[in-house]
Every structure is written in C-alpha cells, then in structure tokens.
C-alpha cells in the first residue's frame, strides 16, 4: 500500500489526511492487510454465494408510524446550522455553469 493509495482511500472515505497520517497509515494498513490475507489460504472456494445465517435483515412495510412533527424540534436542535425549519449546507451547484 503506497501513499497515493492511502490518499485515494481518504478521498473515497471523505477524510482529509495529513502527510504524517498518510505515512503511518501506509505502513499500518499494509501490515494489517498482510495479516488478513491469510484467509486466502483457508478459503479455496471462489467467493460468491455465501450462506446467510438464519438471522438476516428484512425490510418492514414503508409506513409512517409516528405522527408528523413528533421528532422535528429535536432533530432541528441537533443540526449544526439551520435556517427556519431547513438544514443549511454549502451550495453544491456552481451557478456559473
């Protein structure tokens, strides 16, 4: 794992990494990957279909279970920046295009 790969992973995971973090993580993640790669010698079947255990996620019906507005005030209070009943974020569309 080289530094460029670590920086790319940081970008994918939306974490800005310092030069020093990139250095340390490159070494540490390489050694962890080397360790976990030992499963390749154990599992000789082609990975693909895995048996899911008897317990697995299922989706419930998409129905509203609480009256509208029950949690609104609490949710708004937790937001870092609001404008009335709206969550405020940086603009993502550049108007010059």
């Amino acid at each position: 794992m080289d530094k460029a790969q670590i920086q790319h992973l940081g970008m994918l995971a939306r974490i800005k990494l310092s030069e020093q973090e990139v250095d340390t993580l490159a070494t540490e993640i390489s050694s962890i990957l080397e360790y976990v790669s030992t499963i390749n010698s154990l599992v000789d079947v082609e990975a693909g279909e895995q048996a899911v255990g008897p317990v697995h996620n299922v989706f419930r019906e998409d129905q509203i279970t609480t009256p509208s507005g029950t949690h609104t005030a609490d949710m708004l209070a937790a937001m870092p920046e609001t404008d009335g009943a709206f969550l405020k974020v940086k603009k993502i569309l550049d108007q010059s295009h």
Partner: peptide, 22 residues
C-alpha cells in the same frame, strides 16, 4: 480506510467475499 479498501471494486471478492465464506 481499511474497510473502504476491502470493499472497493476489484478487492471485494478477495476480502469481504472470502471472509463471509469463512
């Protein structure tokens, strides 16, 4: 970062897939 790596395209089968099989 480790999780992002093992789930990324091209590595998923070699890591996550095999781990779930194990």
């Amino acid at each position: 970062l480790l999780g992002t790596y093992v789930l990324s395209a091209g590595y998923y089968d070699a890591f996550y897939g095999k781990a779930e099989t194990l």
